[in-house]
Amino acid sequence: MNWLGYCRVGVLVPSLLWVALVGGLLLLAPNAQADDFPEYRLKVAFLYNFSLFTEWPAEVGPTLQFCLQGTDPFGRDLDALQGKPVGARSLQVQRKAGNDSLKGCHIVFIAASALERLPRVLDEVRGLPVLLVADSPGAAGQGVMLNLSVAQNNKISFEANLLAARTAHLQLSSKLLRLATEVIQ
Rank of each mutant, 00 (worst) to 15 (best):
Q94W: 10
K96G: 01
N99M: 11
N99H: 10
D100K: 02
K103G: 10
G104H: 10
G104E: 14
C105E: 01
I107T: 08
V108C: 05
F109N: 02
F109A: 06
S113Y: 04
S113W: 03
L115C: 02
E116A: 14
E116M: 09
R117V: 04
R117L: 12
L118S: 01
P119Y: 05
P119Q: 04
V121M: 02
L122Y: 00
L122F: 02
L122I: 04
L122S: 01
D123I: 07
E124C: 00
E124V: 01
E124F: 00
V125Q: 03
V125C: 08
R126L: 11
R126Y: 09
R126P: 02
G127K: 11
P129G: 03
P129W: 04
L132E: 09
L132K: 06
A134M: 01
D135I: 01
A139H: 01
A140M: 07
A140T: 05
G141K: 09
G143R: 00
G143F: 02
G143I: 05
L146N: 10
L146R: 06
N147H: 08
V150I: 13
A151F: 10
Q152E: 13
Q152A: 14
N153C: 07
N153I: 05
K155T: 15
I156C: 07
A160Y: 13
N161L: 09
L162K: 09
A164T: 06
A165F: 08
R166T: 13
L170K: 04
L170R: 06
